[in-house]
Amino acid sequence: MKSHENPLFCDIALGERIERAETDFIAAGSEAALRRLGGDDGFVIRLAGGVACRTEAGSPLNKVAGLGFAGVPGADELDAVERRFADAGAPVQVELAHLADPEVGAMLTARGYRLVGFENVLGRPLGGVPSEAVPSGIDVRHSDDTDFGQWVDTVVGGFARPDAQGLAPHEEVPRDVLERAVRDLTAAAGMRRYTASVDGAVAGGAGMRITRGIAQLTGAATLPAYRRRGVQSALLATRLAVAAEQGCDLAVVTTQPASQSQQNAQRRGFSLLYTRAILVRP
């Protein structure tokens, strides 16, 4: 099946399903980070079907996610969340799906939030879709606890030097902070880890979380020396095959707009489902 012949259509119900999975993922990683950090500066607050999280300074987990599918948050609820971020000396960042209730976006902009960027959510159905072969010359294996450190180093090393194609992320995360966030998400959310090797040398790594029939492809990174050699394709093919074997009906991935990652995903049957606007209140 080619994606342009039968692209996946995303209605509001499917958007809500994906955003719920994302909300639980962010909350689980944040709760793990708070257990590691101790103290009382951080928080995980459920908010109108979404979640507001603050862990450590500069963490990609510091955000409000999942709003707009379970009613509009009250002004007093937002006041309380904004005070918690302000007490921590941090801005409030909201990732808002364009399928969410438009009233949420209107409320946020009225409160001084400004648009700083976008990210795209792509999806591909898995039921009845034939699996793809892993490109020759690349070996992909499941990564276990014995090489967890190497897997983290590989993934973080790839993320630290992103591909130049497309729009750049709106923020840069320090490498040590990113590494701790990856460890927290992996430990807390039941992420499956995969390592790709070329000629016996580790070339890339990727993760996948399975929840409620959704395979969340939680990021893949290739070390710069091995890019443009099919490593991403191999990691993707392996994860899709495992997800289908586990009974998932949907795979999703989040990318920067117009990036190499988005292009790779669309070449392999993924459709652009919706966009998240990134809104920040200083």
Rank of each mutant, 00 (worst) to 15 (best):
Q262C: 13
E132M: 12
G29Y: 12
R36H: 15
R20Q: 12
Q232S: 10
R276D: 06
E31W: 15
Q262T: 11
L223S: 07
E82N: 02
S30E: 11
S261K: 09
V134D: 06
P174K: 08
L61C: 08
Q150A: 06
F148T: 05
V72E: 09
Q150R: 11
Q216I: 00
A221H: 05
L279S: 05
A220M: 09
D24T: 11
A110M: 08
R180M: 14
L37W: 10
S259L: 03
E171Y: 13
A251R: 05
T275I: 13
A168P: 09
Q246Y: 04
E103T: 10
T23S: 13
F25L: 03
D101T: 05
A244G: 10
A52N: 01
D41K: 15
G269D: 00
A13R: 10
R227K: 11
C248P: 00
V94Q: 01
P169R: 11
T146A: 10
R111E: 07
T186Y: 01
D176Q: 14
G219W: 02
V104D: 01
D101H: 09
V134S: 08
D147L: 06
L61P: 15
G127R: 04
A80P: 11
L78V: 01
D163S: 13
G127C: 10
H98D: 14
A201M: 07
R180T: 14
S143V: 07
V177M: 06
P224R: 05
W151Y: 04
E95M: 08
A201I: 07
T195M: 15
Y274R: 13
H142V: 13
N62W: 08
R192Q: 12
A48R: 02
G204E: 07
L250S: 00
A133M: 01
A187L: 11
H98R: 10
P102T: 03
V242Q: 11
G74Q: 05
R267Q: 07
R141M: 01
I45T: 15
A215L: 00
P282M: 09
V253C: 00
A168K: 14
Q260K: 08
P224N: 10
I210Q: 04
A168L: 14
Q232W: 04
A57C: 03
T238L: 10
G50M: 02
A88N: 02
Y113W: 08
R46N: 11
E56A: 15
R281H: 06
A221T: 07
